[in-house]
């Protein structure tokens, strides 16, 4: 059973976002990293790029699959996790911690209300098992 961390918000496309004031930290959920298996590559955007909610900001690849990463909410990229370029496996080992992808300046906090909370996401994962 994969781990769902309390206090985060989740998308149906398996991203999580941790809100720290006006900043959002975004990553891939434990459920998704397990499904992908060994992650070999993470593609990240440039700092300063702006994306709308739902838009693809990067991608993640294993040897058997690839998937796009989507913005849980709209925002501008303020920081990217450079360490993932050399150690993409961090997404497997620590998806909610060192395996984060990007930090954004959230442009429309009301969009957060559309996201799943931990319990709802856990239920959503269970449905897909």
């Amino acid at each position: 059973m994969s781990k769902v961390e309390q206090g985060l918000k989740y998308t149906q496309s398996d991203e999580w976002i941790r809100v720290e004031g006006s900043v959002g930290v975004i990553g891939l959920t434990d459920y998704a990293q397990e499904a992908l298996n060994d992650i070999v590559y993470v593609e990240l955007p440039d700092v300063g790029a702006t994306f709308a909610k739902g838009e693809s900001f990067g991608s993640v690849e294993s040897v058997k699959a690839a998937s796009d990463m989507h913005m849980p909410v709209s925002g501008t990229v303020t920081e990217i996790n450079e360490a993932l370029q050399d150690a993409p496996e961090t997404v497997n080992s620590d998806p909610y911690g060192a395996g984060w992808f990007i930090k954004i300046a959230i442009s429309n906090p009301t969009e957060l209300n559309d996201l799943l909370d931990a319990d709802a996401y856990e239920k959503y994962c269970a449905e897909r098992e």
Binding site: E61, S62, K64, A66
Partner: peptide, 14 residues
């Protein structure tokens, strides 16, 4: 063969 997930049999319409 590497970088396979780019290919049609895995990525399909994407």
């Amino acid at each position: 063969m590497t970088l396979r997930p780019r290919e049609q049999d895995i990525r399909r319409e994407k």
